[in-house]
Computed example of a mutant assay.
Amino acid sequence: MTGTPKKAFILLADGSVIEGESFGAEGTTIGEIVFATGMTGYQEMLTDPSYYGQILTQTYPLIGNYGINSFDSESGKSWVKGYIVREWCDEPSNFRCENGINNFLKEQNVIGICGIDTRALTRKIRESGVMNGMITTEDVIAKKDEYLTQIKEYVIADAVNHVTCEKPFEAVSEQHDYKVVMMDFGYKANILKSLQKRGCDVTVVPGGTKASEILAKKPDGIMLTNGPGDPAENVEIIENLKELVKSGVPIFGICLGHQLLALAQGAKTSKLKYGHRGGNQPVKDLLKDRTYITSQNHGYAVLSDTLNPEIGTVSHINVNDNTCEGVLYKNTRAFTVQFHPEASAGPMDTAYLFDRFIDLMKEAK
């Protein structure tokens, strides 16, 4: 970092002001402030559509040490509303490095702040719960009351429609073994790659695509992807999923897809106090009686006790708080998980779930 750094400020909904230094783009941004605990994978986080509407705080103190490349992005752009780090590295070192984190944020018009105590901020969020906030390079004190009103009025709404693809597209495999329709609620690129690697020709469709249009493609399986926002607000998608369940076509859901299918089957969801975000979340597979370390990014969870036991059973639980992390359905060929088995930069411990989906399609055939 060269020259005199420009000041930047965080203003939280409770009125707290935190002073730091500007990096990335300059200006003012408002979002829901969340934290992620991964030691690596910052590029994947920045380009994960599930962070739409949120200001991301990294708990790991040094970010950007291996740079940015053209291979690891989960989508074509950054979706975060802002970025908070303790320190960023201005001399990254990695054989794949093509860009620095500061330049990347400027190119993506993401407003960042560094030089703050991210541990203290994370502790505040853990104790108080996720809250709205602002990053600004303007005079926060002079406009504090005005800013606080804007912060308190901010809501993440209609999130899936903001991140889903505009029209269907094809992504074929080398083997052409299975036809999968992937409902894009804000998909991560590695979900698509994981399916292609296993011989799936994938048709990616907008999240709001009607069940009749999906079934007309005669898929061997249906993939429900991750995505942002409150799952319960996606009323039309939930109705479509009810029809897809009746078809008997094998279904695999991840993250938001997991929540949406549970809602379609009569269960309920609720917002977590501060969510699960990062690549070190322990999950127990109840079928295998084994605990895996998983990558997660979600602020809502399926309420286990609202799931009809005649329809489905909880298959995975979070070891830290016992929240529902997976459902195995009894009334149709479907299973879902809250975590990310396709995770990059890792861990890849639960990639076997994609193989389970392949087996389900093989049985259905």
Rank of each mutant, 00 (worst) to 15 (best):
Q338T: 03
S50R: 14
V17Y: 08
H298C: 01
H162G: 03
T350F: 07
S73V: 10
D230Y: 07
T149E: 15
T323Y: 02
A8D: 07
S194R: 04
I237W: 03
G64E: 04
G278K: 00
S344D: 14
A36K: 09
S212T: 11
A351T: 13
L215Y: 00
I311W: 07
D285A: 12
P5E: 15
I33C: 05
L241A: 03
L62W: 06
T4C: 12
R126F: 09
P341H: 12
P61K: 10
I293L: 14
Y154R: 05
D355C: 06
K268C: 07
Q54I: 01
Q58L: 14
K271C: 02
Y329V: 04
D48Q: 08
P168C: 06
K365M: 05
Y300P: 00
I238L: 08
E342S: 05
V155M: 13
A345Q: 11
I125R: 04
M183P: 00
L192V: 03
D285Q: 13
M39I: 13
P49A: 05
I101D: 03
A343M: 12
S75R: 10
G299P: 01
L121V: 12
D220C: 04
Y60E: 14
D285V: 08
E325Q: 15
G257K: 03
Q196Y: 09
N297K: 00
V249K: 00
R277L: 13
K242I: 03
D184E: 03
M1G: 15
I237A: 10
S93A: 13
K124C: 04
E127S: 15
L195K: 02
Y300K: 01
S73R: 15
Y83Q: 09
I311N: 07
I125D: 05
L256E: 00
G100L: 07
Y147Q: 03
I111E: 04
S22P: 09
F335I: 08
R96P: 04
I113S: 06
A211R: 05
T118Y: 06
V110M: 11
T306W: 07
E153I: 09
S78D: 07
S344M: 15
A262V: 01
L261Q: 04
N308K: 12
C89F: 10
T137S: 12
L263Q: 05
P250K: 00
K144C: 06
L256C: 03
K288C: 09
A13N: 13
L360I: 05
F9C: 04
Y300A: 01
N280T: 12
N234Q: 14
K242Q: 13
Y51Q: 08
Q265H: 07
K188W: 04
G279P: 11
G299R: 01
E233F: 02
G207Q: 06
T2Q: 15
G248L: 02
T37M: 11
G129R: 08
V160Q: 02
I191F: 08
E146W: 08
K124Y: 11
F71G: 06
G53R: 01
H340W: 12
R86P: 03
I18E: 02
Y60K: 11
A211C: 10
I293M: 14
L307R: 02
D359C: 13
K124M: 13
V302N: 02
K188N: 13
G278Y: 01
N190H: 15
F23N: 08
K217A: 10
V235M: 14
P309W: 11
Y274A: 07
R277S: 11
G100Y: 07
S270G: 08
K152H: 06
D72C: 11
G312L: 06
A171V: 10
N99Q: 14
F357N: 00
